[in-house]
Computed example of a mutant assay.
Amino acid sequence: MLKQQIQDDMKTAMKAGDKVRLGVIRLILAAVKQREVDERIELDDAQVLVVLDKMLKQRRDSITQYAAARREDLADVERFEVTVIQHYLPTALTEAELTALLDAAIASTGATAMNDMGKVMAILRPQVQGRADMGAVSTLIKQRLAS
């Protein structure tokens, strides 16, 4: 399980004395644990990916804001956190793979207009979660359905 791998990596970082990496891994585990406590469930790999994806989006937003404020020191910290989080995510989809999945989802739902976007997202989300930026996927769907 992904959660077990993260816990094992925490132990490795502790033994290696890698305090910066350890801090990021602890943030990840805290976010996972928080969701488990809130929902009173044990998260599976797909749900852990959702948590990681959300954390990644938060870090990217922070990087943008720090860069705009010319706080590169803080942006660099966030960039490091992004690299650690991405280590646990599956390999990112290429543009061709994403386009193929999008085409298949649109074809299987018979989507023709913007009001069908929810159907397409419902099919795509499990396939691309953690492998593509959901905001970019949403934009692609909107472009396809608008034309």
Results as ranks from 00 to 15, higher is better:
73 D>L: 04
64 T>Y: 09
82 V>C: 12
98 L>G: 09
95 E>D: 15
70 R>D: 13
98 L>K: 07
84 V>D: 10
82 V>L: 05
100 A>Q: 08
93 L>E: 06
64 T>M: 12
100 A>I: 00
74 L>W: 07
83 T>W: 00
71 R>P: 14
103 D>P: 02
102 L>H: 03
65 Q>G: 11
85 I>L: 05
87 H>D: 14
84 V>P: 14
71 R>L: 02
71 R>D: 15
92 A>P: 00
67 A>F: 09
71 R>E: 13
73 D>R: 06
92 A>V: 00
66 Y>T: 03
65 Q>V: 15
68 A>C: 15
92 A>F: 01
99 T>S: 01
98 L>W: 11
68 A>Q: 15
82 V>F: 04
81 E>D: 14
75 A>F: 10
101 L>E: 01
102 L>D: 03
101 L>S: 00
92 A>E: 14
67 A>W: 11
77 V>T: 09
92 A>H: 11
64 T>C: 07
97 E>V: 00
69 A>V: 15
77 V>Q: 05
75 A>V: 11
69 A>Q: 14
93 L>Q: 05
92 A>L: 05
84 V>A: 13
94 T>M: 02
81 E>P: 15
88 Y>M: 09
100 A>S: 05
85 I>A: 11
100 A>M: 02
96 A>W: 00
68 A>N: 15
90 P>M: 05
89 L>F: 02
88 Y>I: 14
101 L>K: 04
